[in-house]
Amino acid sequence: MRIVCPFCGERELGEFTCLGDAKPVRPAAGASADEVFDYVYLRDNVAGETSEHWYHGGGCRAWLKITRNTLTHEISSVEPAAGVGAAKVGA
């Protein structure tokens, strides 16, 4: 598999680590235990397009949000996960 890192260009799968579903958002401080439980444990098992967090540990150490089809492994988008990196790329 090849992933086009927005910072480093096209790189081989071995440079990356997949964390998993990028959809859940960490609840703000003061959230209920149930909300945090859902964030920590509840995941959809999608057959089709899904967004995932990947770490480019063998390259720029950026966390990326990758849209991948779990049926074909086709990657339709790669973008910085959030934060400073995103701002830099947008600039």
Binding site: H53, Y55, G57, A62, W63, P80, A81, A82, G83, V84
Partner: peptide, 20 residues
């Protein structure tokens, strides 16, 4: 050593991007 670096980068980039 490696996993913590990865975890902290996740916290910094994804969970708490508002922190400089």
């Amino acid at each position: 050593a490696g996993p913590v670096m990865q975890h902290l980068e996740f916290c910094r980039q994804v969970l708490f991007p508002e922190l400089d």
